[in-house]
Amino acid sequence: MSLEKLCKLIEDGDAVEAKIVTGELLNKGVDPLKMIDSLTKTMAHVGELFAKLEIFLPEIMLSGEALSAAVDVLAPYLDATGGREVKGKVVLGVVKGDLHEIGKNIVKLILETNGFIVKDLGYNVDPLIFVKEAEAMEADFIASSSLMTTTMPRQLEIIEILKSKGIRDKYKVVIGGAPTSQMWADKIGADLYCYDAKSAPELFSAALAGK
């Protein structure tokens, strides 16, 4: 039983075994912070493989599930030692009228495995729901995806609702999706254009740091 074996289980997407081995390692006295550090590095490696399509979506999703299973076991120990670092809180969804969610799901996975807490609102989400959920969660980011040109205006509506409520500056508004662009982000006054899933953690962290 070793940390290396656990990392391999995460890479292979074996959630059941990962959960068992995580418990065993804790019982052996392995430092939970050291474990989470190794698991994060493993997931970053899996993310790199996926970015190059050396593995495909089903595989990275299984790795994500295995990581979640391990983190669930570690959570009480991490809390006892000050907790896992949370890089930011995000409400994420696909805008009203749009039913395409594969890109949003990948972004969610990449963010969660890189230390962000994500509230997934699903697809066909009313602009007001984005805002209400962000308020409830005390989110840092409101991130919306659009795959169709005729649903992109709903991203603007989120910003307009924030302005109407006088809370525009409380949140970083992020847009993404195939037809969106930096030009569209500039036009509607979004804070960040997320051009692909793999760059999301870095872009979100930089935005929060004001870079």
Binding site: K96, G97, D98, M148, T149, T150, T151, P153, R154, L156
Partner: peptide, 13 residues
Amino acid sequence: ILEETFGHLIESG
């Protein structure tokens, strides 16, 4: 595909 109609952004639905 049109994105605008007579200057108005087209919104799905």
